[in-house]
Computed example of a mutant assay.
Amino acid sequence: MCESATDAVHPRFFRKPEHYVRAFKIALIQMSVGPDKAKNVAAAISEIHKAKEKGAQLVALPECFNSPYGTKYFEEYAEEVPSGSTCRALSRAAAEAGVCVVGGTLPERCGHALYNTCTVWDGSGALVATYRKMHLFDIDIPNKITFKESEVLSAGDQITTFDYQGIKIGIGICYDLRFIEMSHLMAKQGCSLLIYPGAFNMTTGPKHWELLARARANDEQLWVALVSPARDTTAGYVAWGHTLLVDPWATVVDQLGEAPGTIMADVDVNLVEEVRSQIPIRVQRRTDIYDTVHKK
């Protein structure tokens, strides 16, 4: 009998061990961000500790949590990873609180290049993952918004995942959310949760923020978290806000509005297995005809 060509299935989904329980409490922090870098970082550290007090085991911050979002700010606020002051503060907070911290994003300087970078720190304060935004936000919507990150930023070239207590988690940043190939590759690598620090604007936010989060959750049958800064109507770039968490059935578990706040929720990986076993698209894809491949 010939074997059919299908996606590789992560070993976790072949058999569910007896007494299998895979769940953790996540905190998604929608915080205000202003021009004072030190104040922004201090606020983020405070929120990490508050989330820990509420039982969070993994805390995620928004895109550009230590600086205003905008091409004119990236050079001024940029720092090296992991030696910069923001990274040192995140490492210390993760260790003191004993939580995993997905450090939103910060403008990273590496030589002459600037990146929009997410760092991930474990409960001992060790750096376990670094992701540089791969798809730069270059758009032009007439009479609405024109923005070109590539004028200042360089693009990353590595898909990034990390393991948290035996659960694989993938990282994307904002505009990356629109590219299904990226999320599919992370799912193929065994991810049960994708986290996107992001700052959609007042044009694309109402149209696509929730839509894309639910689409990625539905397409890949996993959890999706989008973490935005709070809305500041006085800023040069006004973020949509609406931080949200979507489950593998593509149901919005919780969503904030425009103001600062925190989502606290349980992420149950058993639900990933439930959906994938009941709607087994992974073994039904016609990879003899089409496929998504990772070019290393």
Score class of each variant (00 low, 15 high):
Ala5Asp: 12
Thr6Cys: 08
Pro11Ala: 09
Arg12Tyr: 10
Phe13Arg: 10
Pro17Trp: 12
Glu18Lys: 15
Tyr20Thr: 07
Val21Thr: 12
Leu28Ser: 03
Ile29Cys: 05
Met31Thr: 10
Met31Pro: 03
Val33Ala: 05
Pro35Asp: 10
Val41Asn: 01
Ala44Met: 02
Ile48Ala: 04
Ile48Glu: 00
Ala51Met: 06
Lys54Arg: 14
Ala56Trp: 01
Ala56His: 03
Leu58His: 04
Ala60Trp: 01
Pro62Thr: 08
Phe65Met: 09
Phe65Pro: 00
Ser67Trp: 00
Tyr73Lys: 08
Glu80Ala: 14
Gly84Ser: 09
Arg88Met: 13
Leu90Asn: 02
Glu96Arg: 13
Glu96Trp: 09
Ala97Asp: 02
Val101Ile: 10
Val101Gln: 01
Gly104Glu: 02
Thr105Ala: 06
Gly111Glu: 04
Ala113Ser: 15
Tyr115Thr: 02
Cys118Lys: 02
Val120Met: 05
Val120His: 03
Thr130Cys: 14
Arg132Gln: 08
Met134Asn: 05
His135Arg: 14
Leu136Asp: 00
Ile139Cys: 04
Lys148Phe: 13
Lys148Gln: 10
Glu151Arg: 14
Leu153Tyr: 02
Asp157Cys: 11
Gln158Pro: 02
Thr160Ser: 13
Asp163Ser: 15
Tyr164Asn: 01
Gly166Arg: 09
Ile169Ser: 00
Ile171Met: 05
Gly172His: 06
Phe179Gly: 02
Phe179Ile: 12
Glu181Arg: 09
Glu181Met: 10
Met182His: 10
Ser183Met: 09
His184Asp: 08
Met186Glu: 07
Ala187Trp: 03
Tyr196Phe: 15
Asn201Tyr: 07
Lys207Thr: 14
His208Cys: 11
Ala213Thr: 06
Ala217Gln: 04
Asn218Tyr: 14
Asp219Arg: 09
Trp223Ala: 01
Pro229Met: 06
Ala230Val: 06
Ala230Met: 08
Ala230Arg: 04
Gly241Tyr: 01
Pro248Glu: 05
Trp249Met: 12
Thr251Pro: 02
Glu258Met: 12
Pro260Leu: 09
Thr262Phe: 05
Met264His: 12
Asp268Ile: 12
Val269Phe: 04
Ile281Glu: 10
Arg282Pro: 03
Val283Gln: 14
Arg285Ser: 08
Ile289Gly: 06
Lys296Trp: 10
